[in-house]
Design a protein around this nucleic acid. Structure first.
Lengths: 313, 313
DNA sequence: CTGAAAGCGCTTACAG
DNA sequence: CTGAAAGCGCTTACAG
């Protein structure tokens, strides 16, 4: 029984008698034999692995992305490496290098700020990369992102339509990728010409509270808040109330993401909904496409968003 | 320049001149050379990888676990495979086999129900395994779990002390591992002899609402709810109010986990806090210990819990 | 300090 | 239908 024959049976190549096949299968069962994927990968140049690199574990979309990517990869018989860059460029570099050394067949990455060249470097070497919320101009790479400009405009429009005149924005200190609005409007006009102000905080409930305090200092007549995510919005609501401002009567608050508890806090949160399922499916499909047909230059995928109006604004 | 010499430099083995070293380093830089970890792993029998296998991505502790495991593994220069069994025994089997084939050096697994023998099988073959919330009686394996019995008793005691007499429990349909209480008390006495009733639902906000409806059918005089997690508790609160019951006046509700928004819903949630950081650190340390000193039979690690009393009960 | 040989467990051509 | 040879990119002894 030569290794070659075993290999044929294990890989269902055909070209063996049923008797041989059965003998080999029995032996496999008896010995608990499993093919060594490292050895196989060494020679086929296909490791059967892919990578998912996120920037921040706390991002509510990461979970959906991980779940969906997982399902998609499982169907393809691939195992998934998972790593976080913790929003650190050097760490992201180390992670990418490590995955490259492990011969992953492709990667999904939520990149740290300004790391497109780094990603393009790997994609040019032949590694398919899907960059989330970021453009990578290179072969073997594509981007998937939400249309946050549109979400932003919807939110501002809603605030203006409901009579708000002094809008504050609470952004995130961690460089924002497309899942968090506001980066493009540094001038603070929010594309609406409204009086406006922006502060940056940690993207947490506590950060949201701090952000509201800061905005109130800068702009005592504040009557609306746009928060970069729902936890920040929840923190802002709490702090506003602690300061004696009613929500939504005195200050309207809009979040972003529509996390599960958003409809259950008081007041229930008006928010820009990012459809996590849609997002994750698009990302997984994009990587699949890149792996199946390498070398293509592709247009980025832009996903629609929607404003969910509840009680907070 | 023989491969052997390059190998020495790459692995910092010593035994080469500085000049040689520099030449090799320069060449590595110029060619963008990265050692092929598959080839290395094939021969050293150490792949530089570990696995994290969870049962359910929606579990709030999974995130903390993933983050902490990640940090711990990064420090050790190991990459992490990530997979979910989606609470399916067959799928867990496939995942374990796949990771084994990829020659992981160890695994953290939140096991599906009754899969201890399966885990023990791998650990006996020499794969270190940390089982979360479950006992695995085998060498190379250990368990880490919260002391949910204690949490459970704290909660019931608190309800009884505050005059509740008719307690309902909303458990999870997905077989509960130790992060979710209630499994041990199928008789429904909750170890307290109180009148009581248990229903099982999906561990989500919607599930919690459904659970409350069911309990109210079964037990119209219900005045307290113990929920298997905070989302379920939030759903139960919403449904109770929709039925005209006040919380906490008519019905007291206690959750489990203390997720971030738990303090911000209305009424703020009384809950059994499971310290995610403590948990994740314990798990990572346990696996490290198993990898460093294989073959040991270890006692499970049991982590304390605490009851956080807020407004809902 | 440096290198030639053998081999990790597989698969890819090629021969019978 | 089956197998002997070569080689993937490394590391482990061992020789100079």
């Amino acid at each position: 029984m030569a290794p070659r024959t075993v290999s044929r049976v294990v890989n269902d190549e055909g070209g063996y008698s049923q008797a041989t096949r059965q003998r080999i299968l029995d032996a496999i069962e008896e010995l608990g034999y499993r093919p060594n994927l490292l050895a196989r990968g060494l020679i086929t140049r296909r490791s059967g692995t892919v990578g998912l690199v996120v920037r921040n574990l706390a991002d509510p979309l990461v979970l959906a992305l991980a779940a969906s990517a997982q399902d998609s990869f499982r169907e393809q018989g691939r195992s998934m490496f998972f790593a976080s860059s913790d929003d650190d460029a050097d760490r992201q570099g180390a992670v990418l290098q490590s995955l490259w050394s492990h011969a992953v067949e492709g990667m999904i990455v939520i990149p740290v700020r300004d790391s497109s060249p780094q990603l393009a470097d790997y994609s040019r070497r032949g590694l398919p990369i899907v960059a989330v919320g970021s453009l990578v101009e290179a072969r073997n790479a594509t981007g998937v992102m939400f249309d946050l400009d549109a979400g932003f405009r919807l939110a501002v429009r809603h605030l203006l339509d409901t009579g708000r005149r002094s809008i504050g924005m609470i952004g995130s200190v961690s460089s924002s990728y497309a899942l968090c609005p506001g980066e493009e409007d540094k001038d603070g006009t929010f594309g609406a010409g409204a009086g406006s102000q922006m502060v940056r905080v940690q993207p947490t409930v506590e950060g949201g509270a701090a952000g509201l305090e800061q905005l109130l200092e800068l702009k005592p007549d504040l009557d609306a808040i746009l928060a970069c995510n729902d936890l920040v919005a929840i923190g802002a609501v709490g702090a506003a109330r602690a300061r004696g401002r009613r929500v939504p009567e005195d200050i309207g608050v809009i979040g972003c993401n529509d996390i599960e508890p958003a409809g259950f806090v008081t007041p229930s949160l008006t928010t820009i909904r990012l459809d996590a399922g849609l997002f994750a499916a698009a990302v997984a499909a994009a990587l699949q496409g890149l792996i199946d047909e390498p070398g293509e230059q592709r247009d980025p995928v832009v996903l629609p968003v929607e404003l969910v109006v509840r009680d907070s604004a």
